[in-house]
């Protein structure tokens, strides 16, 4: 079997919340509790979930922007979560990130050429100016940007053009793996399709592997190979993209699918009860989804289900009663 390009083993992320200095309580927010995923080369691995489920935290932990409280992260079989800044530097060129909001992720005072040259200068100091220039021109072509953009500043571009520049910046060091955190949510519908097509084309021409973080399941259906559905810092279901739509196993996945507005209409006709995420500082002892679950039993409130393979399928689900 191939070595996964990215593997996480029981990654935990806890944040201590600010407290009053006299307070005895030390509240801790569990952003990730025991996340284990393995991403194979060439995949478009999607992470879906609602806000606060830990999907962005997972992406940031893999990129090394956050250090896990416990657990291990591997890149091509090498453990990377404990590396210090200088030891990590050679790997950084291989792993890059695209952020949600291209209005915030580009430095407004830096022109496109400098934005794109910066990662090369930092991560590949051996390259001379001519090589950097050639690399920048190459990546601008690959992402559908015009060469005349090089001397322009971000405010001269529309949202879709900015996101192309952000993608070009991620590609300029020739990475193998890209974390894309909601790369199309801030864009208009007609622009979303342009960016999704660009990401698909780049995957084919450059052999990229994606970790695609999104809240939109319809994007997963079109784009993803496998998908992890997260809820309150845990993976609730791990499945092939086509299976998650045809045969969802976890009740939470079914709730998510049911909530997608359909072009045929009619699925919002019944009133729905208000549901909300439990407090991540004091998570319930059992299944985090138990308070909203329609098939909840006593066992769910006391015992937290582990991610387990479901019989006769390639899916894993964290539910006592999934089958």
């Amino acid at each position: 079997m191939n070595v996964p390009i990215i593997e996480t083993k029981n990654v935990e992320m806890r944040f201590a919340l600010p407290t009053h200095f006299l307070s005895r309580q030390k509240p801790v927010l569990h952003a990730l509790s025991g996340v284990s995923i393995a991403i194979e080369p060439g995949e478009s691995f999607c992470v879906v979930g609602e806000s606060g489920c830990g999907k962005t935290t997972l992406g940031r932990a893999i990129m090394g922007l956050l250090t896990p409280s416990a657990g291990e992260i591997y890149f091509r079989g090498t453990r990377i979560d404990q590396l210090d800044e200088s030891a990590r530097k050679p790997i950084r060129a291989d792993m890059q990130m695209v952020f949600q909001n291209p209005y915030a992720s580009l430095n407004p005072r830096r022109n496109v050429f400098d934005t794109l040259a910066e990662p090369i200068r930092h991560l590949k100091p051996e390259m001379n100016h001519a090589e950097i220039r050639a690399q920048v021109e190459d990546v601008l072509d690959a992402t559908g940007c015009d060469q005349s953009w090089q001397r322009k500043l971000p405010h001269e571009f529309s949202g879709g053009q900015r996101q192309r520049i952000a993608i070009a910046r991620a590609l300029v060091t020739n990475p193998a793996f890209i974390v894309a955190d909601e790369p199309i949510s801030a864009l208009d519908v007609s622009i979303q399709a342009q960016i999704l097509n660009l990401l698909t084309d780049l995957q084919e021409t450059r052999g990229l592997t994606y970790l695609f973080i999104t809240h939109d399941l319809s994007v997963v259906k079109h784009f993803g190979t496998r998908v992890a559905v997260m809820y309150l810092g845990q993976v609730m279901e791990l499945a092939r993209a086509e299976d998650i739509f045809a045969r969802p196993k976890h009740p939470y996945t079914r709730l998510l699918l049911d909530a997608i507005p359909k072009l045929t209409g009619g699925s919002f006709d019944k009133p729905r009860q208000p549901g909300e995420l439990p407090d991540p500082v004091n998570p319930p002892p059992g299944c985090p989804f138990a308070p909203r679950c329609s098939m909840v039993q006593d066992r769910c409130r006391s015992e937290r289900p582990k991610l387990r393979p479901i019989a006769n399928s390639a899916t894993q689900a964290a539910c006592h009663f999934a089958d």
């Binding site: 529309s158 949202g159 879709g160 053009q161 208009d188 519908v189 007609s190 622009i191 979303q192 399709a193 342009q194 999704l196 097509n197 698909t200 084309d201 319809s218 994007v219 259906k221 079109h222 784009f223 993209a241 086509e242 072009l263």
Partner: peptide, 22 residues
């Protein structure tokens, strides 16, 4: 707009895209 929706296209095919922006 409708053709550009991921729901309305086959998996593995490119999405229909409107060129340019408003």
């Amino acid at each position: 707009l409708l053709k550009a929706l991921p729901q309305n296209s086959e998996r593995g095919q490119d999405l229909y895209q409107i060129p340019g922006s408003m």
